[in-house]
């Protein structure tokens, strides 16, 4: 659909404004894996992390009640795939010290070499997985 890229760009601007407010206000990089991971590691700024996650969960909850049709994730029903994928995303983003928001949005906008390389690698790995498991093996 032709309007999808407009929603994509507009939503992207909102994500970027959230990241900009977090950086200029709190002096921190808005990375989803880092903010959640810090809670798990017992790092400092627990209340700030919880406030951020409250907004990240709460605003989509409110919007999902107002939007028609209601949003859906269309996540695969194969729970083995879901569990393996969740474990890989959790371990991988913490070892690499960032995900799509931290390395992608915040890193690339700063011309960070680590952010750019990480983004190229995780997009590449995702594309390779889909070629193998969807097109060659027909598993997902």
């Amino acid at each position: 659909m032709q309007t999808e890229w407009i929603w994509g760009f507009g939503g992207g601007l909102m994500i970027g404004m959230g990241a900009a407010i977090y950086l200029l206000g709190n002096g921190r990089i808005m990375g989803a894996s880092g903010i959640l991971g810090g809670l798990i590691d017992g790092s400092d700024r627990t209340k700030e992390r919880l406030a951020f996650i409250a907004g990240l969960v709460g605003m989509p909850l409110i919007l999902s009640l107002l939007l028609s049709p209601a949003p859906a994730t269309h996540l695969t029903g194969n729970l083995s795939v879901v569990i393996i994928a969740g474990l890989l995303v959790g371990v991988g983003t913490r070892i690499a010290n960032g995900c799509t928001s931290g390395h992608g949005v915040c890193g690339i906008s700063r011309f960070s070499l680590r952010g750019i390389v990480a983004t190229v690698i995780y997009i590449g790995a995702g594309a390779v997985i889909l070629v193998f498991l969807r097109h060659l093996l027909g598993l997902i």
Binding site: A32, S33, L36, T73, H74, L75, T76, V81, V82, I84, A85, G86, L87, L88, V89, G90, V91, G92, T93, I95, A96, C99, T100, S101, I121, Y122, I123, G124, A125, G126, A127, V128, I129, L130, L133, I140
Partner: peptide
Amino acid sequence: MFGMGWGLSGLCP
């Protein structure tokens, strides 16, 4: 690892 999980599920953190 992250990219593999992201491709499998379509979800990032």
